[in-house]
Design a protein around this nucleic acid. Structure first.
Length: 151
RNA sequence: CUACAAACCCGUGCUGCCGCUGCUCCUGUACAGGAGUGGAGGAAAGUCCGGACAGCACAGAGCAACGCACCACCUAACGGGUGGGAUCCCGGGCAACCGGGAUACAGAUAGCGCCACAGAAAAUAACCGCCGUAAAAGGUAAGGGUGAAAAUGUACGGUAAGAGCGUACGUUCUGUAGUGGUAACACUAUGGGAGGGCAAGCCUUGCGUGAUGAAAUGCCCAAUAGGCAAGCGAUUGAGGGCUGCUCGUCCGAUGCUUGCGGGUAGGCAGAUAGAGUGUUGCAGCGAUGUAACGCCCAGAUAAAUGGCAGCAGUCCUGCAGCAAUGCAGGAAUACAAAAUCCGGCUUACAGGGUUUGUAGUUUU
RNA sequence: GGUUUCGUAGUUCAAUGGAUAGAAUAGGAGUUUCCUAAACUCUAGAUACAGGUUCGAUCCCUGUCGAGACCA
């Protein structure tokens, strides 16, 4: 299966990113969200995916112009986030079932004081939340969140 | 050599690991893997101008609106640039003049409007004064304080007192002629006229502009219904054709408008070889043009060009050294990233280089 | 990517090119009250920045900076 072929490589290819306007709009209309400063994460858990979707997760990044006016600053933050996600994504990929797909969007709400260690730390925290959403522990009540995303 | 100013140029490099993306080739299965090779800027920025390009009627006329405003040249074009003229400012010089800088530099004699306070008066002037007279009426603008600005400066004549009222020399506008210059303009001669300022108040004159912008535009695929209701209209023309109005003109009947309900919104082209760029020669004071030879130099689309580490470079500081330089330290290493593409302008910018000019110091 | 509007006290708004930029509210001090509120008195506080036109600029012009709104 294609999932296993890209399993252990630290890549971030086109099929692993959110690229379709329609997918993004449904994500923002029906998805749920939580915040881990300086990120706001919008996600949606899809229990089924088509044949043309080899990746278990599709990810998107957005840095609003409100706080970071210069394009250079926004590019810098987006690239740091992409890099941190690229190096940590396999923990999540291993937990998503082969038939499901998670759509996920990161919105940056901080200022321009942002370095690569910061990005690694915050992505690690977000990863912990997403792992509980995808694979809820039996004793916790996180299962209804995934059920709500199905509707 | 140092400091300052101006113009122009540069504005990090190498290695390792992990990634993104365009093109070519190879391997297999739509897609993936491998190899090779390209992958942000001087401002890519602000969006302030000008174009290319695109469809829109042949993109047609008038008004309105908007823009520009000394002259010539450059340019695809420009509100940009180059050279020149005029005026003003600064420095030097006794002066002629020299050097540098600035200029939205058409018109105030087309008209309207405005000019606070003060002042008699702020633009068809008359308070004091002067003349005049018995007193008035009247004449007058030399002198007076105010104010940013006060009715052409000086001299002589003239007069009751005065006044461009007259004359001369000036200031300034303008006509004509001559000389120089492509021209703006300068100089000379001569005629005529005017007398406050503001046109970045309205405006007048001359010149120019079709508006809309790649979310333009064309094509393919998917989806679909020839849906329901109301209204208008069918050559006596509903409605429309991308500028605000008018005209002209064109299209126009399975048509148009409104409401309800429903569907699609994915991809390709546009889109990266061009007013391109490097070197040398020639023409020109210069902007620039031209010839030969060489080069190919981003093309993404929820949006690539990155992350981490090491070494070096440049700069600063300290120490050693006559010097070249060496050693140590430094979170000093900027401003900022394409979004159809070009030409400008403006703004931001650590540090460095070249040339020219000015000033100072040292040596010969 | 493009179009467009606007910047005045801490805040909401005024101000034909003309003296010291005005008002409400918020702030500070005081009077009143046993204390607070209300009321009254006093007080400090601003033309986004840089040039230009003009005798004189919040106003007119130019350029920056900043804040919004709109266009599928």
């Amino acid at each position: 299966m294609s999932t296993t072929r890209i399993h252990q490589r630290f890549t971030l290819q086109a099929v692993e990113r959110l690229k379709l306007r329609k997918q993004i709009e449904t994500l923002f209309q029906t998805g749920e969200a939580f915040s881990v400063f300086p990120l706001r994460v919008v996600y949606q858990y899809l229990p089924e995916r088509g044949e043309a979707e080899p990746s278990p997760v599709r990810i998107g990044f957005s840095i609003p112009k409100k706080r970071l006016r210069k394009a250079v600053q926004r590019n810098r933050v987006r690239r740091l986030l992409k890099e941190a996600w690229r190096l940590q994504k396999h923990a999540l990929y291993a937990q998503v079932p082969a038939t499901a797909q998670l759509h996920c969007f990161f919105i940056y709400t901080g200022n321009d004081q942002f370095t690569f260690p910061d990005a690694e730390k915050v992505v690690k925290k977000v990863m912990g939340r997403l792992l509980r959403i995808v694979n809820p522990a039996p004793e916790s009540g996180q299962g209804e969140t995934a059920a709500g995303a199905n509707a």
